[in-house]
Design a protein around this nucleic acid. Structure first.
Length: 204
DNA sequence: TATGGGATTACCT
DNA sequence: GGTAATCCCATAC
């Protein structure tokens, strides 16, 4: 199970196409710590470096933190926020561009006991329903920043069928002015395994 | 059920 | 020196 890898070429196309037609519904798999944990991607957000005020690489400005986003699509961009949480992105598009998809929600599929231990809860809908939570559940930290997602430690396995999705504004980026309203968050329609959005910072 | 605030640190200006 | 692509818990009702 989850032996297949998503074709690398799929990460090089238009980031929105890659997000909705390749990533959404596919499986994020981890063997970090020696135990397989995996989940089906239910929710993600697209960030576009060249123009997007919410993107860490706005105006394609490269810094030590965001350097991984400039790599060829198909690797990981992991960063640290709020002094305690890691956030996992799939880098998209050609090298030199700074586009990525922040993975915000998973439906737990494998290694659920391991996830429960790491998360300190047994509630299935609180294991991976948020970008910080899913990193904790899968053991993802900045040690994986920049790694290839076609390997055996952290990888993406293709979905089996097309997904019905819905677009909404992104979460927690109120500062991004006109880009705060762009409908660049995508969820699997009707999924229970999406992030619980606080009233503050929720799209209008 | 809803709201508000605190945790905690690397990174950027 | 200010703040962040968050989460959790305490308090209130």
């Amino acid at each position: 199970m989850f032996e297949d890898r998503i074709d690398k070429k799929a990460f090089l196309q238009d980031p929105f196409e890659a997000a909705t037609e390749v990533l959404l519904g596919s499986y994020l798999c981890s063997r970090i710590g020696g135990c397989l944990t995996a989940g089906r991607i239910t929710e993600l957000e697209v960030y576009i470096g060249a123009e997007d005020k919410a993107c860490h690489a706005y105006l394609n400005r490269k810094t030590p933190r965001n350097a991984a986003m400039f790599e060829t699509g198909g690797c990981a961009y992991v960063f640290f926020v709020y002094g305690m949480y890691n956030q996992f992105n799939v880098v998209l598009n050609e090298a030199g561009t700074a586009n990525a998809a922040l993975i915000r929600g998973l439906e737990p599929v494998a290694g659920i006991e391991t996830m429960q231990e790491r998360r300190g809860t047994d509630r299935l809908d609180n294991l991976t329903t948020g970008p910080g939570k899913l990193c904790q559940a899968l053991g993802i930290t900045r040690e994986q920043n920049g790694i290839d997602l076609g390997g055996d430690l952290l990888w993406l396995s293709p979905r089996d069928k097309k997904i019905e999705w819905q677009a909404t504004p992104r979460i927690g980026i109120d500062y991004a002015e006109e880009y705060a309203e762009k409908p660049w968050r995508f969820v699997i329609r009707g999924s229970r395994f999406v992030s619980k959005i606080p009233k503050k910072g929720r799209p209008r």
